[in-house]
């Protein structure tokens, strides 16, 4: 696959070239210096799941490029009355130029892209992918490290339920990083190593963190646990990032979290606010990366 993707459904189908193109484009973007690239274009933000940062980030990104946005929530409108995704998509298609969709069911953006002729941007689907998050994570890492190639990136926590973990793993491995997953069996099944080439599972967090360049902490998605039993005290003891554990990683290792972060759960206050944490940079970079995504997918397309 060459050239610009028509839709952004996930990181898995992208080539490393396409990923690098997105990241290069993001470097030129700045929400404080609005552009007119997408003037007159309409972008629907179709959110079937609650989200603050992703929706706001896409909205600011779209407006910084001169596009207008229309936000549709699942709790509003015809969706609540039982309209199918297909019909909602067909209705929107006649009035907007692209759809950014967040959906609780994995594969929903894929379904939309199969039905519609306008570009679809996946803003997170179920447990599947969250490509814009992975791009902003990579962008943030690259502001501190020269390259992803050869980096040891450790993702800790609830990998099973995490679309961020899946998108990150695809992206990091495509760009040559070594990915290690760390978490308990119920949140990290053995199949996870087959997601992308070279993924390792290390169950012991101290061992996993040793020599890490990047530590990506994930939230325990209690709303998705559906019957899985985990003991939170035990979880904190085994998988919380605390100052002692940060020292096991490399001296200049980055501490990341895709948010929303539960302080005192995934990491302690000291670590979240510490010098190695880039959590807030991730948020700002999110807008830049999403500007690049929208500009790349919609720019020049009439």
């Amino acid at each position: 696959m060459n050239g610009k993707p028509r839709s952004l459904l996930g990181i898995e189908p992208l080539t490393s070239r396409q990923i690098i193109d997105f990241l290069s484009a993001a470097r030129k973007m700045d929400p404080k210096r609005p552009r007119t690239t997408l003037r007159g274009r309409r972008i629907a933000l179709l959110f079937y799941e609650n989200s603050t940062r992703t929706r706001v980030s896409f909205e600011v990104a779209a407006k910084s490029l001169g596009a207008s946005t229309v936000v549709m929530h699942a709790s509003s409108s015809s969706i609540e009355k039982g309209e199918s995704l297909k019909d909602t998509g067909l209705t929107l298609q006649s009035i907007v130029d692209a759809i950014v969709v967040r959906h609780p069911n994995s594969g929903a953006p894929t379904l939309l892209s199969r039905i519609l002729d306008i570009p679809i941007v996946n803003a997170g689907d179920g447990m599947h992918e969250h490509p814009s998050q992975a791009l902003l994570d990579a962008f943030t890492i690259l502001e501190h490290k020269k390259t992803l190639k050869g980096l040891k990136i450790v993702t800790v926590g609830d990998i099973y339920h995490s679309r961020v973990a899946r998108s990150d793993a695809h992206l990091f491995t495509k760009l040559g990083a070594h990915v290690t997953f760390c978490g308990p069996e119920v949140l990290l099944p053995e199949e996870a190593t087959q997601l992308a080439p070279g993924i390792r599972i290390v169950r012991d967090m101290d061992e996993a963190l040793t020599g890490a360049d990047v530590v990506m902490m994930l939230r325990v998605q209690q709303e998705r646990l559906s019957g899985l039993q985990i003991n939170l005290d035990e979880y904190i003891r085994r998988y919380q990032l605390n100052p002692r554990r940060v020292k096991l990683a490399k001296k200049n290792a980055l501490v990341m979290h895709p948010g929303p972060m539960i302080r005192g759960m995934e990491m302690t206050d000291e670590v979240a606010d510490g010098p190695q944490s880039v959590v807030l940079e991730q948020v700002l970079n999110g807008v830049k990366v999403r500007m690049a995504i929208l500009a790349s997918i919609l720019g020049g397309r009439r």
């Binding site: 594969g107 447990m127 599947h128 899946r166 199949e191």
Partner: peptide, 9 residues
Amino acid sequence: GVTSFRLGL
């Protein structure tokens, strides 16, 4: 299995 993990299903 591997496919369900990959698809997030």
